[in-house]
Design a protein around this nucleic acid. Structure first.
Length: 197
DNA sequence: CGGCTTTGACCTGCGC
DNA sequence: GCGCAGGTCAAAGCCG
């Protein structure tokens, strides 16, 4: 089908970009080892910036989408919340897990890079890929491989700006980060290298 | 051989 | 009610 840029198939993983943040529990202070980014994470010119959804956690209320039109300043290529389903027979299909109606908060941000996989220090397993309407790049779905950790993330590249990757996290890790990655300066410099090409 | 990716099928919610 | 789009499952295949 469609390959999402250089990252797929032939060789397993391209050199990943390391993102040392921990998932926030309530608001959006992304932090890594005590280092807070706040929402001045970077911007337009830049490599990394928070999506509006991040700054407004009410983006995904428990009951489907009643408020998802509040913050519709995402582009047409927004990361859209939807999909809700009740499992029957305990089998889960489509949508997300049947953990009642409580939807886990999602946090989305953009990065400018030519690789899709942002290595945030956790181990992820890909469980799906879907073509998205109005987007020539597919969206990839990942789940944290750590036992008992239900965190998921979606990765999608924008059609309009192929250099931009939108990553959406859902849930909070229930375990410590698996790889050590502090040195955020180094990481930022990586982004600069990527963007300045 | 185990872990991971790929990919088609399936399920659900939403809009018309 | 129907069709579409998004999200997940699971079998098969690949790779280290």
């Amino acid at each position: 089908m469609f390959l999402s840029s250089s990252s797929s198939s032939s060789t397993r993983q391209p050199p990943p970009i390391h993102l040392p943040f921990m998932l926030p529990t309530s608001t959006v202070t992304m932090s890594s080892h005590g280092r807070a980014f706040g929402n001045r994470f970077v911007d337009e010119t830049g490599f990394l910036r928070l999506m509006p959804s991040v700054e407004a956690p009410t983006w995904f209320p428990s009951s489907s989408d009643e408020t998802n039109n509040n913050n519709n300043n995402h582009d047409d290529e927004q990361v859209k919340i939807s999909g809700k389903r009740k499992g029957e027979d305990g089998r889960v299909k489509g949508g997300d897990k049947p953990e009642g109606k409580v939807r886990k908060p999602r946090y989305a941000f953009q990065t400018r890079s030519h690789v899709d996989i942002l290595d945030d220090g956790y181990r992820w397993r890909k469980y799906g890929q879907k073509a998205v309407k109005n987007n020539k790049f597919p969206r990839s779905y990942y789940r944290c491989t750590s036992q008992g950790c239900n965190v998921k993330k979606q990765v999608q590249r924008l059609t309009r700006d192929e250099g931009v990757v939108v990553t959406t996290y859902e849930g909070v890790h229930s375990h410590p980060i698996e790889k050590s990655n502090d040195n955020f300066e180094h990481i930022l410099s990586q982004f600069q290298i990527y963007t300045s090409i």
